[in-house]
């Protein structure tokens, strides 16, 4: 029963990772940019929600609705001022630019909010603490259900947007061949800005969930980025449903790892990530014979 519970909690945790990873996946899929500031953007979103909650006393969810337009505008500005310029300079420049942006965001947050930890748990109401005891060894938290439902909703909505609407086709067309898209009248700059705005808005949603489920401080971003990045890679770079699946796989790996030993949780996630990398990039053929030989040697001895 503890195993079933671990898998269930892993799915809830993984849905959270998937939300974090979603924006990263969009930006990679559309612009081939790996946004190293993605985790910090999520934390920035959490801080904006936190400020609104502190000043108005509304629920974290209401505050998030108010923060959403701010994040969308931030996404546009980010694209038009930083990413667009760096995209022109080749494949490595956006990586460096977003790395720099990550440091800038962390330091601005430190300056403004001090290194104290904050949480949005208290302002999210009953959702934070409610849970249902299904059986003695199996409990389902309200927050877990909310995060999973929102994750499925976000990925579903994006899927419908990309496959059913003209704006979605335009985005896919630009992702596949920006040069050819320009030649049929598509302004790739505005498509990129729209993609970044969506990515930043969903990152803020990840930040909201981070703040509700635990605590955050100005330097929480990079850790979130690592989990988000692993989710994207496990699910297959640039594949949307893959990212949801990858996030859940990572979450389940972590909770199962915690069953072995509490300190093994994060490590189990990293091992899954490494295993996927090795198999995906043909390393399986290069590495597996070596592993087999090593095992054979040991048994022979």
């Amino acid at each position: 029963m503890t195993l079933v519970n671990a898998v269930l909690q892993g799915i809830f945790l993984g849905a959270f990772y998937a939300v974090l990873a979603c924006g990263l996946s969009i930006m990679f899929g559309v612009m081939r940019i790996i946004n190293l500031a993605h985790g910090d953007v999520a934390v920035l979103g959490a801080y904006i929600v936190f400020v609104i909650v502190e000043h108005t006393g509304v629920s974290a969810f209401v505050a998030f609705a108010a923060a959403l337009p701010v994040m969308v505008v931030l996404g546009y500005i980010l694209q038009l001022t930083v990413l667009e310029r760096s995209l022109k300079a080749g494949i490595l420049t956006p990586l460096l630019a977003t790395f720099g942006l990550s440091i800038v965001i962390q330091n601005l947050l430190q300056l403004t909010f001090s290194p104290d930890v904050h949480s949005l748990g208290g302002s999210a109401g009953v959702v934070t603490t409610s849970s249902w005891q299904v059986t003695s060894g199996l409990s389902v938290s309200a927050l877990g259900i909310v995060v999973l439902a929102v994750a499925v909703l976000v990925f579903g909505a994006l899927q419908v947007f990309l496959s059913r609407t003209r704006a979605g086709w335009v985005m896919r067309a630009t992702a596949e061949d920006a040069d050819a898209a320009e030649l049929v009248g598509i302004d790739s700059r505005s498509v990129y800005a729209r993609a970044t705005a969506i990515a930043v808005a969903i990152a803020a949603l990840g930040g909201l969930f981070l703040g509700i489920r635990s605590v955050f401080d100005p330097v929480s971003g990079p850790t979130q980025l690592i989990f988000a990045f692993e989710a994207v890679v496990i699910g297959g770079m640039g594949s949307l449903w893959g990212t949801l699946f990858g996030g859940i796989a990572l979450g389940v790996a972590q909770t199962l790892g915690a069953q072995v030993h509490p300190q093994f949780a994060v490590m189990a996630g990293h091992l899954l990530f490494l295993a996927v990398l090795i198999v995906r990039f043909g390393g399986g053929r290069a590495v597996l014979p070596g592993v087999r030989r090593a095992l054979l040697l040991r048994t022979a001895r």
Partner: peptide, 12 residues
Amino acid sequence: FPGLTVEENLRV
């Protein structure tokens, strides 16, 4: 656009 259908290629 290879991943788009004929109709989507036209409509974009």
